[in-house]
Design a protein around this nucleic acid. Structure first.
Lengths: 297, 297
DNA sequence: CCAATAGTGTCTGTAAGACAATATTGG
DNA sequence: CCAATATTGTCTTACAGACACTATTGG
């Protein structure tokens, strides 16, 4: 939630809900303390005596807003086992107060002086979804004047990829009324708060790019997956992606020497899965080695 | 220059030098005006009456710092024509005041409420080098608590690639004493102000990555260049890059269908250059089309 | 047996990789 | 002619692309 932490999903992992007032008060005290500790010590020469940052107009806040992507899977009703339907969705939260009360927005919240914006993003993500250790990366800074009616507020957008189960657990344990997963294409057609539509579009562009050029697909897959699952995930994120000989590509030389490897059990035998097919399929995992892409060699 | 605009190269394209005091005063007035215009209008519901961003501790400033890369070329003394020696360098500026007075730092300056951080970066770049329309891109946010002794200051790092001639002109027209180009490797061994060593390292990592996967090499080359020049530029930025059959790669199918194309003169004949060799070499230019890289097809 | 996915065989054209050989030109 | 770079020839290996075919297994 952009620019007003009290708006955001306050209950933390411990399910303790603090009131807005409590939260504001503690926030301020914490910051005041750290200010005297980190900002105003170490006087050292003449210049410093004259220096005062507040002779400038300063920003009114620097929130981190997080585009949380997940891929939902829905079993198709069929006589035989078949591949599920997958959809790329984004987590939105309904604002309760001005500005944009009632509208849907990205989760997020103000950065504190005692943390980096990355830490802030991780903290907010943890408050929303109760998970740590998920893939999270910085997207961009959004600073168009007037983008936030509350003042000069610089939004730092992050992008997180989490597994569906993780979010499902969270939503069940929490009052889900103001939190929901929405298919990306649908979210892009909604009237969202702030410039969050733009942020989601940028985030989508970024993960589409990275989905094809890095191994972030692993964020949407179990540790061991079948090639069909991988293919489906790629197509879910990048609908234009199509590669008829996909299996061959991945099990042939150039890519075989790297990207993925067969998963073996304790006894050394190959592991397979028949979750989505009658005939069991070989399980693979991503290796540590990520091939370097290049235009020039 | 991180966090104190008055430290930075103030003289603009018009060569008019304002004093620190003048600059501070005008800065403040400008910002106050825009604040009442953009931040505090449109009261709309009950929540807003209670809302005050300043109940939070807010950042003391959000500067843009710019890593300006260039490639210098130095002719080698030889009997015959030969390829020049090229070096990747970064533009640094010597700080005049607290903090880190006397130390070298990245050029940069505070963002104003009336501009985006991208606009701020472009403005600062223009003030330092007097050029517009160069390649500039956002790198990262640096927000480690305590990174700036003046307070809670969030640095937004940008990366710019400019041609040597552009910087040479600028340095000649300006008092160059506090401005210099330093070979990157050397800069990384210096004791720089703030966390600027880290920023430069990150910027270097980024352009190395992008040098191989995008066509930003064009930023360091004339519109028409020879394949050797391109190869040299790539190697200057990414020393580990080596491709014995480079010419073939680029003039063969996969890449020929796209990346670069031969340059022709008005009469339709192929254009060549003998600047670096006895035998004239074919000139090429980058096309509009950039091939999409992918791990999966 | 059927549905639904998994995996292989095979053929063809074309690209990649390696290196040697030849070309061009000013001094 | 020589130095220094530019450009092409050639051969081998390997991959890319296409597509049909076989395999597996629960219901």
């Amino acid at each position: 939630m952009n620019g007003n932490e009290a708006d955001s999903c306050q209950s933390s992992a411990s399910e303790h809900k603090v009131s807005d007032t409590e939260n504001l008060a503690s926030h301020i005290e914490e910051q005041k303390a750290s200010q005297s500790a980190s900002s105003l010590e170490q006087p050292s020469d003449d210049y410093e005596k004259n220096y005062s940052p507040n002779r400038y107009r300063t920003p009114d806040g620097a929130p981190a807003d997080i585009v949380i992507f997940t891929i939902t899977t829905e079993e198709r009703p069929t006589v035989k086992k078949s591949m599920p339907k997958r959809q790329l969705e984004v987590l939105l939260i309904q604002r309760k107060r001005w500005p944009f009360a009632g509208q849907w927005a990205l989760p997020g919240g103000f950065c504190r002086e005692t943390e980096t914006l990355y830490e802030c993003a991780r903290r907010e993500l943890q408050e929303e979804t109760n998970v740590t250790d998920v893939h999270i990366e910085y997207l961009n800074i959004y600073s168009t004047p007037g983008r936030d009616p509350r003042g000069w507020i610089l939004s730092h957008a992050f992008c997180a990829l989490v597994q569906e189960e993780v979010l499902a657990a969270r939503r069940a344990s929490y009052d889900a009324a103001d939190l929901k997963l929405i298919p990306v294409e649908e979210a892009l057609n909604m009237d969202l708060a702030f410039d969050h539509r733009l942020i989601i579009q940028d985030a989508l562009d970024m993960i589409r790019e990275k989905m094809m050029t890095t191994t972030i697909a692993k964020q949407f897959l179990p540790d061991a997956f079948t090639i069909s699952e991988l293919y489906q995930v790629l197509q879910t994120v990048v609908p234009t992606f199509e590669e008829p000989n996909f299996v061959r590509k991945l099990t042939s030389t150039r890519t075989r020497q790297g990207l993925i490897e067969e998963v073996r059990g304790d006894n050394g035998g190959l592991l397979t899965s028949n979750r989505y097919s009658q005939r069991p399929a070989q399980l693979y995992r991503f290796t540590d080695h990520t091939p370097k892409l290049s235009l020039y060699n």
